[in-house]
Structures are given as structure tokens and as C-alpha cells.
Amino acid sequence: MHAKRLAFLSLALGVAITGYMVLGARGSWSFILPFRGAKLAALLLVAMSISTATLLFQTIARNRILTPSIMGFDALYVMIVTLAVFFLGSRNFLAIPELVTYLTALAVMVLAALLLFGTLLLQTREDIMRMMLTGVILGALFRSLTSFATRMIDPNEYAVIQVASYARFNQIDTDLLGVSALLCLGALLAAWRIRHRLDVLALGREAAINLGLNPRRAAIEVLILVAVLVAVSTAFVGPIAFLGLLVVSLAHLVTPSGSHAILLPSAALISALTLVGGQTLLDRVLGLSTPLAVVIDFLGGILFLALLLTRMRR
């Protein structure tokens, strides 16, 4: 049953990709195909990163409502990049090779995520609501700090970052595609390799220990992967709050299973379909000017509310 559904999802994704590449093309194909191809590659990377990060995070948090975005991961990354501009000054910031800044921000991101969310996740699980609320408020705090830092920098420099803090699928920065793809594929591969361990972790702390795993160490490893994946996708397109929640919930619906060997590809396919298909539909077919991120946030927000109201009511 799952294999058939995965095949169907792949087929749908194939159609969406074709649509994205050919629809509304004006001009020579030799220009359009590589131009759109690079953006498509970035979209696919982002889609897989977000779905995988969300799935991993939900497994260690043992909660189907929490996602890295809801807990403020992407806001944290945007803040780190902004603070880098703030402290290094934009002239330096731009003079330092982009790659170095990028990797430094990534390293800081991994550390900060471990410190902040590691302690939050490893604390006693008695009050999941307070934990979620903490995440949401932390996200708000990071966003305010980002906006504060951007205001402290000259209005001129403000422009440098503003580009980096909105979800935008249309003007994807493809300069770093190579490095990001490498990082991202590495993290995705690592996630795939631990898929069986993830299945065991999902059983719960005591069951996982009984079967010989160290949940604490596993949580740290998974948090590192999540931090890298979120950083890469945020660097590409900016924060999209509810995409992860939306696609992973859909994956649980389409391929209900406790096995990450099924859930990981299923969520990745649905995520890619949502981004590529949604972008094609919104931009090339309907001709709407609203960014896809806004639509996803609206739908995902409603889903989140519905999940909270039905699942958490006792």
C-alpha cells in the first residue's frame, strides 16, 4: 500500500516539476532551463530539508504538533545572521568571503540550537504546553532582536539583511547552491542512515533504553541535523512557519506508519510537491502576487489550531 502511494506521489511531483520548468516560459530554452533548473534544485533541497527536520524533531520531542519553526529555529538562524552583520559591520561582512560567513553562522546556529533547545527538550516532559509556549515566545524574541539589530545598523545596511529575512521562493539565492546542497545532502543521508534508530526512539525513552539506545545522545545528534537542515533552508528562502507541520501531518495521513523508512520519503515528496506545485500554481497558473509562504502559513496555521484543539483537549 505504501509503495503504491509513494509511487503516486513521485508521479505527481514529476508533473509539478514539468509544469514548473515549462509553463509560462518566454525566450530561449537554453537560458530558461538552467535558470529555472537551479531554482528548482534549491526548492527541492528546501522542501526535503524542512520535511526531514520536522519529522526528526517530532520524533525526539515525541509530539506531532511541535516543529522546529514553531519552536523558533528559523527565527534563531535569521537572528544569528543579523547579529553577524551587526557585530562585524556590513563592510566587513561583505568583504569576508560569503562562504566563511555562511559556515560560521551555521556553526553558531548548531551550538545555539543545542544550548537552547537541548535543555528545553531534555527537561522533564511534564509540561509540554509550557515548552511550546516557551518556543513560540523565544521565536518572537528572536524576531524582535533581529528587527532591533537591523535598526541599529544604518538604513543602508538594513537592506542587506531584509533580503534574508522573508520567505521568498521566487528570488532564490543560488550562489551558495553547491555548498548548501552538499551540507543538506549530507544531513539528509545521515537522517536516512539512522532511520531504524528513529523508529526505536519513537517508542519512548524507557523502551529505547531497554533496546540499547542512548536517547540523550540520540537527541543531541538529531538536534544537530535539525539545526543544519533548518539553517540551509532558511538561508535559501527565509522562514516559513508552518510548512513542516503541514507536510508531516499530511505524510502521516497519506502513509500512516511508524517506520521512518516510509515517513521520511513520504514527507519529502509531499513537501516538494507542495512547494513546486504550489509555486507553479500560484505564480504560473493563477498569476497571484501573494507569496506561497503566506498561503502556506495561513493553511498551516489553521491546521495547527485544529490539531491543538482536537489532540490536546482532555
Binding site: 515525541r62 523508529d199 519513537a202 517508542l203 519512548g204 524507557e206 523502551a207 531497554n210 500512516p256 511508524g258
Partner: peptide, 13 residues
């Protein structure tokens, strides 16, 4: 192996 008193299995299996 151990069977805890209140084994909480969250996954849908």
C-alpha cells in the same frame, strides 16, 4: 530487558 510499570508507547504501531 525491562518492562516498566507504566510503559508509554506513543507511536502508532
Amino acid at each position: 530487558s525491562i518492562l516498566p510499570q507504566v510503559p508509554e508507547i506513543a507511536a502508532r504501531l
